[in-house]
Design a protein around this nucleic acid. Structure first.
Length: 257
RNA sequence: UUCGUCUAGCUUA
């Protein structure tokens, strides 16, 4: 049973829903973990019909089952679906509330997100990061900053959330500043931080600044390796700016066409 | 590590 569940969940994570199904049906005995793992497999791969069938057939519903539904509808930007599941479930915990919070955030419902956030009694780091993301995605940098500063702790995810929002809703200089503060506070910028920043520069129209930054990345952060995705971003930015020659050079440096 | 929740861009367009 234990090992069967382990196999189902690993298939679920890799997106092999069919395999998860066959393991499930071949098991002599299943429990609620098996059912939830199977439900999670469908939810993750967006098989909404199947997920609903499984949900209906499950012998019992746990917090995990409901949270899977909320999360699935969140991924599909189906706010009503998330809310239906959330309000139908008998009790809430921090994880299910966080999932609902994410759905509000993704669908731009910052007020409802805030109400729910305030109502969560045991807020964890994810609750804070999710409400932060709600404001960040809506471009409300003022509220985002106050959440960011008010949170009990700031992880790399919090920093990246702020950085991404600043990159798209404020100016490149501010994004750059955050980027440096992040490092000073002991959170190494990662691939996400870089692409936000590159994007900020290219949207600011300062292609030359992007190029400088790009080369600085290669120099100062070799431990991150310049990933081809960044090269792609740069090439695209150059292309959009009509700098086809520079784009070509960059692409060739990277060994592509 | 037997099940559920948080961040960007690019691509698919």
């Amino acid at each position: 049973l234990f090992s069967g569940n382990l196999v189902i969940s690993s298939y679920a994570r890799s997106g092999f829903v069919d395999n998860a199904f066959s393991v499930f049906s071949s098991m002599l005995e299943v429990d609620s973990v098996s059912w939830n793992a199977l439900l999670g497999a469908c939810a993750r791969s967006g098989q909404i019909e199947n997920a609903q069938l499984i949900f209906a057939r499950m012998p019992e519903w746990s917090l995990s089952s409901w949270t899977n539904l909320i999360w699935m509808h969140c991924q599909g930007s189906n706010l009503e679906g998330s809310k239906r599941a959330f309000y139908e479930m008998p009790e809430w915990d921090t994880v299910s509330s966080n999932a609902m919070l994410a759905s509000f955030a993704r669908n731009g419902q910052t007020h409802e997100a805030r109400e729910l956030f305030d109502a969560i009694s045991d807020k964890d780091e994810i609750s804070w990061n999710t409400i932060l993301a709600a404001y960040a995605q809506a471009g409300d940098l003022t509220s985002a900053s106050s959440i960011f500063l008010g949170a009990p702790e700031r992880s790399s995810i919090s920093w990246n959330t702020m950085l991404a929002s600043t990159s798209s809703f404020a100016c490149a200089a501010q994004a750059m500043e955050l980027f440096h503060e992040m490092a000073i506070e002991g959170h190494s910028p990662d691939q996400l931080s870089f692409s936000s920043l590159l994007n900020a520069c290219s949207h600011a129209g300062s292609i030359d600044q992007s190029l400088l930054l790009f080369h600085a990345m290669a120099r100062d952060h070799q431990e991150l390796l310049i990933q081809s995705q960044h090269v792609t971003t740069m090439v695209d930015a150059l292309g959009r700016a009509g700098r086809t020659l520079a784009a070509q050079e960059l692409a060739e440096d990277d060994g592509r066409d």
